[in-house]
C-alpha cells in the first residue's frame, strides 16, 4: 500500500510529507545552533578577556565567504524556479553553480583554518578560538552535508526527473530549504565571530 502525500500536499495541512519533515528537522537545528550560541554568549559574558573577532580572524576572507554563500542561496532558488518552469537544462546549471559555490566556501574555510594552524592557533588556545573552530566547523559540516545531497540530486538522483518530475521538484525544494538555513546560520555566525 502506498504512503499518501509523498508528492501532493495533504488538504488540511497543505504540505507534503517531506516538506513538513524538513521544517521539523530545521526546527531541531535551530535548537542545536541556539544552544551553541547560548554557550557562546554565556562564555563571553563570563570571560575576563575576550578578543574582538576582527583582531584575530581574517575579516576580508570571511566577507568573501559570506558573499559566496549568499550567492549560492540565490542560485539554489533559481534552480528550483527553473525546475518549476520545466527547464531541466537551466536547473542543472544553477544547481551545479550552487555546488561549486559550496565547494569554494569550503576551500576558503580550509585556507582560513590553515592560516590559524600556521600561527599555532588551535581550539585549545583560548575559549574564543574554541568557539570559533567548533561553530564554524559544525557549520562547515552542514555545508558539506548539503553538497553531498546536491551531488546526489545532480547525479544518480536526477533519474527521478524522468519518472516523477513533481516529486523531484519537491526534493529540490526541500534541499533548498536546508541550504538556505545553513546560509542563515552563517549570516548570524559571521558578525558574532568575526565582527564583534
Amino acid at each position: 500500500m502506498q504512503i499518501p502525500y509523498t508528492v501532493e500536499p495533504r488538504p488540511d495541512t497543505g504540505l507534503y510529507n517531506a516538506k513538513l519533515g524538513v521544517w521539523l528537522f530545521l526546527a531541531s537545528e535551530v535548537m542545536l545552533f541556539g544552544a551553541l550560541f547560548s554557550a557562546l554568549i554565556l562564555l563571553r559574558t563570563g570571560a575576563t578577556s575576550w578578543p574582538h573577532g576582527y583582531e584575530v580572524l581574517n575579516v576580508p576572507l570571511a566577507t568573501i565567504n559570506t558573499m559566496v554563500l549568499i550567492t549560492s542561496s540565490v542560485s539554489m532558488v533559481m534552480s528550483w524556479a527553473a525546475l518549476r518552469l520545466g527547464d531541466f537544462g537551466k536547473y542543472r546549471k544553477w544547481m551545479g553553480l550552487t555546488f561549486l559555490l559550496g565547494l569554494i566556501f569550503m576551500v576558503i574555510k580550509t585556507i582560513e583554518y590553515a592560516a590559524k594552524f600556521e600561527h599555532h592557533l588551535y581550539p585549545s588556545h583560548d575559549n574564543f578560538m574554541a568557539t570559533y573552530f567548533t561553530l564554524t566547523g559544525l557549520h562547515g559540516l552542514h555545508v558539506l552535508g548539503g553538497m553531498i545531497v546536491i551531488a546526489y540530486l545532480l547525479g544518480p538522483g536526477s533519474k527521478m526527473w524522468m519518472t516523477e518530475p513533481e516529486r523531484y521538484t519537491n526534493r529540490v525544494e526541500v534541499i533548498g530549504l536546508y541550504w538556505h538555513f545553513v546560509d542563515l546560520v552563517w549570516i548570524f555566525l559571521f558578525p558574532t565571530l568575526y565582527l564583534l
Binding site: 540565490v74 532558488v77 530549504l177 538556505h180 546560509d183 542563515l184
Partner: peptide, 11 residues
C-alpha cells in the same frame, strides 16, 4: 534583517 530576508523569500 538579512536572516528575515532569507527566511521570508528564499525559504
Amino acid at each position: 534583517i538579512k536572516g528575515s530576508l532569507v527566511a521570508a523569500f528564499f525559504m
